[in-house]
Design a protein around this nucleic acid. Structure first.
Lengths: 343, 343
DNA sequence: TTTAGCACTCTCATCATGAGAGTGCTAATT
DNA sequence: AATTAGCACTCTCATGATGAGAGTGCTAAA
């Protein structure tokens, strides 16, 4: 399918106009609004070609044209120039990050909030997560009775905390001693290494190691870290969801973390840090997203920790701007995360 | 305002029926559906009395009756007996908690999910939070260069982590030593105590103490802990929100954490652990909630850590069941939290 | 190849209509 | 004195008819 320059222009204009008005766009409107040097009849002819190509479609015989999903895909693939975010916007965003608390969790929440506000759509951010869990540090804090708080720090900086119950009460001194021993012996070890070192420890140490290994296995098996969402209500204000039922389906995929992990897992597999994925209208696979588009990027350090960030909005979305926003925020997060990497 | 038994009965039935059908209920329907031993004319007379009292209202002259907010309030205040959740349900719920991981965060997420599913409405759970922050334990883990991961454990079990940047790189040994010294010296101290102890430490120790105090102050100033939400999409499926715009307003109050903290702060002030608050139709104060009711309870240990849990749904809500569910989950959480208290 | 002109199509807002549900009132009944 | 049957009345809502408006596709002229 090879389009003439004029056809590309018209497709672009139809998409632009439709994104603004959410209405089918007619030939006459186009000529008037964009001062085109051709008549509406010419546009009509071109439009009917684009309709043949399945890039545009008519909601009904005598209505204007609306871009098809394929039309959007062509547009995103061929017609958007790599637009960069205005410098002012970039500065505003960076500023927010660098003046926030130095805490990964804060950054991720902030990223979700910035994405949602900038794109006026729902956003998601997953915490950075490593494919391989490497032990870094362990801490045990006496809670009450046989309860102990275990804090586990992984290489890269992921932190997990958990209450464990020991067979009998143990003093804080003894707990610290064991934790120090394990921290010292096992630093930079993976699950197998730790299992191998297990016999070197005394009974208490071995109990702790068992819990430690179980926890690390759990982490290693999970596809993504914590998920942060924001801006779900923006989706509700879109005119394409007058019936809240349709918006419900889309938001449900965000809320139900198993569904979302599925989506992320199968989408991000073949995306590297720096790359970007644009899912338009569910791409035939995600039925609940038939009315939506999702823009996803990966951030982090490819060697160790990576996470996903993205935006979910209506198909009728300002792709160029949203894509560059997502990309920019991904870069900012990558920088922040790699700066504060625990090695 | 003093109601006869029959009037109470009719009010109750109208509410029951309206909750099921979401429609105005007429006198004839009532007689038929509930096999009442009186005629529809009698009901009509009583209904017009209840309408006088402003407990019922007519959407228009020739429609059935709908409960007013005041009607619901009277119903909740006087007519619901302290119904207990069916034992089977209670068991199902407890079971889920006791087989989950022993981790406060997991419990809270689970609580939100259980509440949302049980009540088919949006739910919120705030992490347990103390009015007064008392230091328990500190850990410092070398990250990279001058970056250090600081893990702070408070009495009660709240945990905060944060990256800090020191003036110069410091070895893990030295960091552990300082952390141990501080942990040992300052355990059970509040902010003032720690500030007083500051001079006892060396330069590095004092730097750490400064950050520590700043962080503890921050925690003490915040009204609530982390907030967990679930079931937002349930609200969208309610027939009272055909226009997604109205649902949007209500959900916005949940999503915007500052609004939510406001609501929680002013509502929970005069509620003790074990108590429950029912906000019907925004109570004239919360405009965005005009169409909604919120049921809130407090859980935790009144002496140390408390949090809030609650449900947000349409005014037309099965109050007795929802109230007992919220109350039950609050109790379960109270038990879990106090069992695993860090003292 | 482009454009003016025109008949044609389809939607959407508006209005009229009538069935249906429910009420309030009055007079009869218990 | 309280309850009920009966009935006129009111209001909504679904249905269908109507016409303006927007947009198209086609044809013939430029």
């Amino acid at each position: 399918m090879r389009l003439t320059d004029r056809q590309k222009l018209i497709l672009t204009l139809v998409i632009h106009e439709h994104i603004q008005t959410a209405q089918p766009v007619g030939s006459k409107t186009l000529v008037l609004k964009y001062n085109l040097a051709m008549s509406s009849a010419t546009i009509r002819n071109e439009m009917s070609v684009l309709t043949e190509y399945n890039l545009l479609r008519q909601p009904h015989t005598s209505a204007g044209r609306v871009p098809t999903e394929e039309g959007y895909r062509f547009f995103v693939g061929n017609l958007t120039q790599k637009s960069t975010l205005p410098t002012a916007t970039r500065r505003t965003i960076s500023h927010q990050f660098y003046q926030s608390r130095q805490d990964v969790e804060q950054w991720l929440k902030l990223a979700a909030s910035v994405l949602a506000n900038q794109s006026q759509a729902a956003s998601l951010v997953t915490a950075p997560h490593a494919d391989k869990t490497i032990f870094k540090h362990l801490e045990l804090v006496a809670a009450r009775g046989r309860q102990v708080l275990m804090v586990l720090v992984l290489m890269g900086g992921e932190i997990r905390q958990q209450f464990i119950t020991l067979a009998e009460a143990v003093s804080q001194e003894r707990l610290s001693e064991v934790a120090n021993r394990i921290s010292h012996q096992c630093t930079r070890c993976d699950i197998d290494d730790i299992s191998r070192l297990r016999p070197q420890f005394d009974a208490l140490g071995q109990d702790i190691i068992d819990i430690l290994v179980a926890e690390m296995t759990l982490i290693e098996e999970s596809v993504t870290g914590e998920i942060y969402l924001d801006g779900m209500t923006y989706v509700l204000s879109e005119p394409e969801f007058p019936e809240s039922d349709e918006a419900r389906q889309a938001l449900h995929i965000l809320e139900e973390s198993s569904l979302l992990e599925n989506l992320l897992a199968s989408t991000m597999m073949n995306t590297d840090v720096g790359g970007i994925q644009v899912l338009i209208g569910g791409e035939g696979t995600w039925d609940e997203l038939r009315q939506c588009s999702v823009i996803l990027a990966r951030y982090g350090d490819p060697q160790s920790l990576t996470g996903s960030i993205g935006v979910l909005g209506p198909i009728r979305m300002p792709y160029d701007r949203t894509i560059s926003t997502v990309q920019f925020v991904a870069n900012v997060l990558s920088d922040l995360v790699s700066e504060s990497l625990v090695v």
